[in-house]
Amino acid sequence: MKNIFIISIFLISFEAQPCMVPIASSTMYYTPSALRVCNKWYYGKEVKSKKSKYDPVTYRATDRVCAKFESEVKMQGSGRYNPKEIYTFKKDVVIMKNDDKTRNCPTTIGRSGECMLTYISVAADANYYHMGDLISMPALKGKKMKLPDGSLFTHPGYFRVDDVGGAIDGRNRFDFYSGNMDLYDANNSFGYKGDKETTMYDKSTCQDRKKYQILSSKKDKETARIAIAAAITAATSKMSTILPAPIRGLNR
């Protein structure tokens, strides 16, 4: 009993230190999808503005989303309201994004302005990275990652910095993007149920497999871009995609 008490005090006072460069202190994040979380897409209702009879503007009254989706969006930053729209909170105000980019991107748009790629996009500290920077993590090359529909995606061993985040702090701190698969999703290779060689949710595990390198030469960057494109094409040609499954083939 006394020993347990001592150990618990020891553990309470222990503070997990981030990994040392060049090992990534990794966590993962995702884009909640209303279809997966609430079992339905939301569309809202188009309502005529009553401001003035000369005002032809119509506006949308958004549907009340399910509580779980709302809380997950608050936690993650944004979520999929329907296949064409992204639902975001800014200071508790709902912002709906529905531009060309959003409509053509089944995940979400990162701060880089690019469509976020499952297992490829990462959020990093803007103090050290430009959006669009490429990172190599050789130990992940060739690893089979599960897609939302259960099929496999062969990882090219490269990541692209597509996003920033207030809590992503430090040169070796990365937040890995897992599409619309949450931490507990059985198919999320970065999550709790992922393989030991691919999980990324625990920032305190500083293993050699998380060694990374920032690509600086034009040649290396081009090689990385080609490898990423090839991995995506291979996954797509197997009738699967690295994009969230429920969105595929759904047109409003």
Partner: peptide
């Protein structure tokens, strides 16, 4: 000046 860039990126980010 470095902070101006970082703050701008964080301010309009959809990621928390």
């Amino acid at each position: 000046v470095a902070r101006l860039r970082v703050d701008l990126l964080n301010k309009y980010s959809t990621r928390k």
